[in-house]
Design a protein around this nucleic acid. Sequence first.
RNA 1: GGACACUUAGUUCAGCGGGAGAACGCUUCCUUCACACGGAAGAGGUCACAGGUUCGAUCCCUGUAGUGUCCACCA
Length: 862
Amino acid sequence: MLEKRYSPKDVEAGKYETWKSKGYFTAGDKSKQPFSMVIPPPNVTGKLHLGHAWNTTIQDIIARYKKMKGYDVLWLPGMDHAGIATQAKVMQKLVSMGVDVTKITREEFLKYAWEWKAEYAENIHQQWAKMGLMLDFSRERFTLDEGLNLAVRRVFVDLYQKGLIYQGERIISWDPVQQTALSNIEVIHQDDEGYMYYFKYHLVDSDEYIEVATTRPETMFGDVCVCVNPKDPQYTHIHGKKVINPANGEIIPIICDEYVEIGFGTGAMKCTPAHDPNDFIIGKKYGLEMPIIFNKDATMNEKCGKYQGMDRFVCREALLKDIDSRGDFIKKEKIVHAVGHSERNNCVVEPMLSKQWFVKMKPLAQAAIDAQKNENYVNFVPKRFEHTFLQWMENIEDWCISRQLWWGHRVPAWTNKVTGEVLVAMEAPKDIENWEQDSDVLDTWFSSGLWPFSTLGWPNETEDYKRYFPTSVLVTAYDIIFFWVSRMIFQSLNITEKKPFENVVIHGLVRDEKGRKMSKSLGNGIDPIEVIDQYGVDALRYFLTTNSTPGQDMRYIDEKVSSSANYLNKIWNSARYVLSVIPEDYKEVELDPKKLTSVDRWILNRLMMTIKNVTNNMEKYDFNAASSHLYNFVYDDFCSQYLEMSKVKLNSDNEFEINQTRTILLKCLKDIILLIYPYTPFIAEELYQNLPTHLESIMLETYPVVEKKFVSKLSDNEVNLLFDFIKEVRNYKIVNGLSPNANLDLTIGLKIEVSDDFYLYLNRFTFTEVKTAKEPLSGSGEIFSYPFGSLLISSGANKEEMISKLQKQIEVEESEISRGEKMLSNPGFLAKAPKEKVESEKEKLALHKANLASLKEKLSKI
RNA sequence: GGACACUUAGUUCAGCGGGAGAACGCUUCCUUCACACGGAAGAGGUCACAGGUUCGAUCCCUGUAGUGUCCACCA
């Protein structure tokens, strides 16, 4: 016997361990069609948040659903080493432990980092277990494990040999805190307040000067020229002359180039090739020197004279003061401009000329774009995110993949100590003592981009790779399309000549209840574990996956989780009722549509429609729509109606009907449990285990299917009329201040044939004996007209109320009739609307007219 | 400067070419033997605004306004 109240803690206890130990999570049943997903590997830097909970629950629902649908489901787990983030955190920890990190060696650091990884991986495992995820742990991978390293080296060498990886000196974004290069998308541009500073650049041997503006005066130490547009009339007379750099007194040329826009700013632009991407282009074009003026920590270097060693921002102020004292500082204007910040530590990044490894993106991107456009390569759900992907691919620049870190895949390149020759290869050269391996590691996303195939064993032609690749679905949030999804797509196309996944299901971000992004600085983050402690993991899972439409953000609202828990309690209690009416010796009866009552036919039809609608939406990954169909069935059809009606039948003395009702109750309950199961596996398993007959676990069950013999349309009229009558009587009692079980004088007139049950139920639900009469009804009282019958309540109401109620109903009918007549008198409607529509409007109009007539007759008799 | 979303009941969100839906909140009533984490019955919306297409628009198109997100090197 089930407890009176659904208790998540009791229900959840032990189930996950059982599923896991029974091997239900392990893929490999060759008799079935394969279905595969790889988890977006979480970083080993911290706890999982609500976003992870959402993302993984969606996948778990898909996995469990597909398993029930008869697939051999592989859901592969794993984690990401997250280069910069993890290295930063490990360093922080070492500092707090009192370790002198300036003296630590690469090997020592890596030892600590692997310890850190082990610790955090354990946390993540626990949280996955708590969420109930059916991950195949026998195939778990880590982005830094040996197999993935092999894949990374193989891809690096492949791209290098194809000429798609090169080492070059270019302007990259430099993170002075981590002291590493970053790729473009690791830089967050945010609008910061700053100043535009204007300086006098004096012409050599002249009293004249030109005004030059900059937002970063400290870079003036790297100026190599001043540029003007050759057609700018303002500056024609200074072509070929030289100016004095007010920062260091150096004499630099004026260069004419179309790049400078006439009329923008002062029309004269200082050029710092080593510290600005545009200036770099000009520097290259004219073969200019490219002095670097910063140290790796963004302090000023030896090229900056007395400012050497100063922080860049301190230098800026000091330099301003000095130039001002010489009279060459004109003014500063407050401006708001986009400033690049490191995604990981928010420091201001410095554009800097640096020798790095790059992936040549244009050919890779073009191939991916062509495949996507011509072959509808990867199916984006929702579709619009395909544009996001394509747009990014079309505007892509070369990808800086080297990082000056230790935690990551080391670049498989060696430099000959004698000749300086660079060797890129899978393995170290044999005469290793003559070579030095590149000290850099690769961008984390380089290895993540190989995730769907590297985890399955590639580059080896393993069984798993052959069976499960390409994967079926990838589920991720839209904020990671650039970072990850797009890279998997072009990497996979280039290296395996296959798509990484058939479908990519994109979801949104979880926000706080005010719609703000959850962040550490706001302190508005919600810990999934706390939610689970309060409401249970099933309620959290249900809330997360049913409260937003595909691709849309969602707000975390506590009341909604609570409401999800209430829903589960409702299912729990309906199960409790059903099970309580099933005796030990109960024998299931064969459900023959011919022997079913109208109410039975109705509920089974509703069940079939629900299975159909839920399944359709599951296939579309629309979990909100799928769940709401089930929700409506559970509350409105099953609990509010059928379950109450079953009490009438179960109290009858018809043995056959009693058993038939029990069978239907059980059938509905079982299907509800199976349909809700992918969302809320714990409570579903618990209830399932309490069914009179069941398998070892719900995980071995199959998904409900529509049985055509239970699909009907005719049974609805009688039942719907019954519901209408019941509602009117109940409302009547409330409006008239009568108690719910007050006896009334009821007369009904029917336009359709009904079964004896009709009267039985009406009696039971209204606590009243029912009289019948022919339409239109005669006698005094309140009348309620419906398309298939009318109801007359003769007791309790006064005349005035009766009249006003009748008049209200007449008004409603009249407005309906005028609507119908307007439509049907419109020649355009008759000519162009679908025939069925016209017919149904005609029928409705006739019904309303009949209703109006009977109401008017009623009124005249009062 | 581009791109994409969003604007529907008090609130959070669904829906979508042929009569506006849910949850929570609110009002009234009910502890009747599945559930008071409940039941019954209600109130509450010119579906942002303006044009257009259509027999018919909350829904499609165009524009406007507001909100949000992403992308973008403009000195």
